[in-house]
Amino acid sequence: MTISLTVPDVLVARAKTGDIEALEALYRAFEAPVYNLARRMLRNAEDAEDVLQETFLEVVRSIRQYRGEGHLWGWIRQIAASKALMRIRREQVREAEVFDEATAAGQAGHNVGQALDLERAMQELSETGRAVVWLHDVEGYTHEEIGEMMGKTVSFSKSQLARAHARLRRALGAGTEVG
C-alpha cells in the first residue's frame, strides 16, 4: 500500500496549539494508514487498535516537537512502528519466541506444496518476521533503521527477513527448493 498523505500546514499549526478539532482531523487523516501498518505487523486486530490509540495519544503529546521537516506521515509512522514493535517485545516476554517460531514452522511445513494466500502466509510468520517483512518490503525501512527500532543489529534484521521470506515461499508453494 502506497501512502501519499498531505495535510495543510494550518491544520498542523492548530493541532500544535492543542485544538481538539484539529487533532481529530489529523486522527481522521492518518487513522487508516496507522491501523493498516499496525495490523500488518501484529497478529491480532485488538492489538492493532490499541497501537492506533497509543500512537495518536503520542502524536497529541508530541505534536509540538514536529517541526515540519519531512512528511508528517513519516513522523507518525515512526511512532506507530515503534509502538507496534514495543507490543511485539512485550508479547515475546510473555510467550517465548521459540515457541512461536516452532509453531509457525510446523504449520508452514504442514502446508508445503499447498498454495496459501499471501495474507494467511503472513499470519503464519513469527511476529518479528512479519514486522520485519512489512517494514522493509512495504514501508521501505532499511535494515539499519529496523535494527535500531528493534534494538537489534543489522544482521538480525537481515536474517529475520531471509527466514520470513523462506517461510513465505514454502507456505505459498512457489518454485523449486533451492539453497
Binding site: 502506497t2 487533532l23 494508514p33 493498516n36 486486530a45 492506533l52 490509540q53 495519544l57 497529541v60 512495504v138
Partner: peptide
C-alpha cells in the same frame, strides 16, 4: 511476492478509537 505485499488491500480499524483518544487527551 514483494509486489503482492505492497498491493495488499488497506485494512481499516473496525472500531472508532477517536472517542477514547479524545477522552484520554
Amino acid at each position: 511476492r514483494v509486489a503482492q505485499l505492497k498491493a495488499l488491500p488497506a485494512l481499516r480499524a473496525p472500531r472508532d478509537r477517536w472517542p477514547a483518544v479524545r477522552a484520554a487527551v
